[in-house]
Design a protein around this nucleic acid. Structure first.
Lengths: 149, 149
DNA sequence: CACAGTATGTAGCCGTGGCTACATACTGTG
DNA sequence: CACAGTATGTAGCCACGGCTACATACTGTG
């Protein structure tokens, strides 16, 4: 076990710094579910023309009851509108969020592929990773991709 | 619908595929908290000699009550041992998990830095990203880092 | 047009991960 | 050695994101 360069063996961030990092990671995780729903709804609307709770539930691999509850939360948050039995649609803010999320998703997948991650793993991991990619990191990903293309 | 190269504008994964992806992302998110605790406990033991619930709580930015509850869960899962007022220690499996998590964390941070992500953002985002990096992706990260060094 | 079948919605349960408030144990100092 | 101060633990609350079971609305076909 040789000690690699760069990283000192036993070094910890200052306590407040570390607390802040974990806090941000927690809040990112909190918004993750909503982002997934909004992106999926946007995709369904774009491809099939409508986004019904049951479709959403099947796509996400959850029960329809769970999907409906989450949709209700998104409605409270002003990201979607949904009238009973009439499907789900995105509001203006929801549409903007979806666009941002979709773009970020593409960049993350492209970056993973560029790094040499196998396609299936790239798609899989991007699903979780994307929610934790900050603007600064996203920008760096973009620069990297442009540089190597 | 022919499968175009790279990104077609309107293309969705097959429903079961997509459901499986989201399911995996969900389960990754589930183990994330435990991984954070185990890694932190390991670091505290390595640097300070002991890991007390209050230290852990402060580091994670949560109340001590929350930390204690989570530690109890980890105890149930056999990752840590903790006797009242005597601090928290890792079991064998816990130690192994911590080692794996720590190694993965380092690789993720190094990769982000190599890509050109600013240091602070790299540390911050790695905290969330690492939990979604599969073995295949981690291996690709390692290959990339070795290739450019 | 009735009715079976499907989609949608509602109710109620569970575990997790937060929190505050309170109670108990430990510890170091006057 | 007492006691103030800190750490630890416990209880009980909340929101979220799962689930199943049941009730209601819609729809297309015989």
């Amino acid at each position: 076990m040789a000690s690699p360069p760069s990283h000192a063996p036993l070094e910890m961030p200052a306590e407040p710094t570390q607390a802040r990092r974990f806090g941000k990671a927690r809040s990112a995780q909190h918004s993750a579910l909503g982002e997934d729903y909004v992106e999926l709804i946007s995709d369904l609307l774009a491809t099939g023309g409508e986004a019904r709770p049951t479709d959403i539930a099947r796509r996400l691999g959850v029960s329809h009851a769970t999907a409906i509850k989450t949709i209700a939360r998104l409605k409270r948050e002003g990201l979607v509108v949904a009238r009973p039995y009439r499907g789900v649609f995105l509001t203006e803010p929801g549409e903007r969020l979806a666009e941002r999320v979709r773009r970020r998703h593409r960049v993350v997948v492209d970056l993973l592929l560029a790094i040499g991650v196998p396609a299936e793993a790239a798609e899989q991991d991007a699903e979780g990773i994307e929610h934790h990619v900050s603007d600064a990191t996203l920008a760096a990903f973009g620069r990297f991709l442009r540089a190597i293309s």
